[in-house]
């Protein structure tokens, strides 16, 4: 299996704070990697640097052998990396259906010149609508279909955020707390979709998640971040036995 993403000595500073401090790691293709660590340890900043939302202060990021350091977010998405947000970044006054149709990426009608000619975009729009129906059925949010996004519950917004991946189909998905505030049944379901997407469609995932009880069952590899540095790494069984993990992140072991 080849390496899909390579991060080398990445540094991101906010003033005096080194939010990401000299982080290097590699992500193999078709894998599910979990990033864990206490709040403020730099997990989201790391994802934001990869997705192009922040420009790193030092270090390099390679995706499929191409240097993507410091590129614009939209260029990075079009190369195949997509990030979902911890606080759902959806379009609140648009209906759920409209939101999903914006998540769909290939519509030629989104060019100003094409927008005058319906026949240039109507076929793609139909395909997008079919995909939209598939997605809402998968996520069990059909009933919310024509409601505005600002009328949805917190959990439904999380699902809407996750649906970006189903509509846009990136190769590498960066998920920031995909199952926070989602009920355990659906959370397990989302993780099984992730596993399925990995197995059947060859997608790669990097996930930040605090709900280890659910996440650990599905992931291949774990990195523990503390104060912007990688504290330890390994396969789940190994990492969960590490003593330092309990000291900094999980509650201390009973004596």
């Amino acid at each position: 299996m080849g390496t899909i993403l390579k991060v080398e000595k990445l540094v991101k500073k906010f003033g005096n704070l080194r939010a990401v401090d000299n982080v290097s790691f590699e992500v193999p293709e078709k894998s599910i990697t979990l990033l864990i660590g206490p709040n403020g340890s730099g997990k989201t900043t790391l994802l934001n640097c990869i997705a192009g939302i922040y420009k790193p202060d030092a270090g390099k990021i390679w995706f499929n052998g191409k240097d993507i350091t410091g590129r614009q977010p939209h260029e990075i998405v079009n190369m195949g990396i997509m990030k979902t947000f911890q606080i759902p970044a959806v379009f609140s006054r648009l209906s759920l259906a409209e939101n999903l149709l914006v998540f769909y990426r290939k519509n030629p009608g989104e060019k100003l010149i094409n927008s005058f000619f319906k026949k240039r975009w109507i076929n793609e729009e139909k395909l997008a609508t079919l995909k939209l129906f598939e997605t809402v059925q998968t996520l069990e949010i059909e009933s919310q279909f024509n409601r505005r996004a600002n009328e949805l519950s917190g959990g439904q917004l999380k699902l809407l955020e996750y649906s970006k991946l189903l509509m846009a189909e990136p190769t590498l998905c960066l998920l920031d707390e995909p199952v926070g505030s989602i009920n355990p049944v659906l959370a397990n379901k989302i993780f099984s979709y992730i596993t399925e997407a990995r197995n059947n469609m060859g997608k790669t995932f990097i996930i930040v998640e605090h709900r280890l009880d659910i996440a650990v069952k599905y992931v291949d590899y774990i990195y523990v971040l503390v104060n912007g540095r990688i504290l330890c790494e390994g396969v789940p069984e190994e990492v969960l036995k590490r003593k330092e993990l309990y000291e900094v992140y999980l509650s201390p072991l009973p004596a």
Binding site: K83, V90, F91, V102, G109, E110, N114, W121
Partner: peptide
């Protein structure tokens, strides 16, 4: 058209549209 929908999305959250 879908362009109009994209405009509304930009109005709501520009960073999300970039992403």
């Amino acid at each position: 058209s879908p362009f109009g929908r994209l405009l509304k999305a930009i109005r709501e959250n520009e960073l999300a549209v970039q992403c």
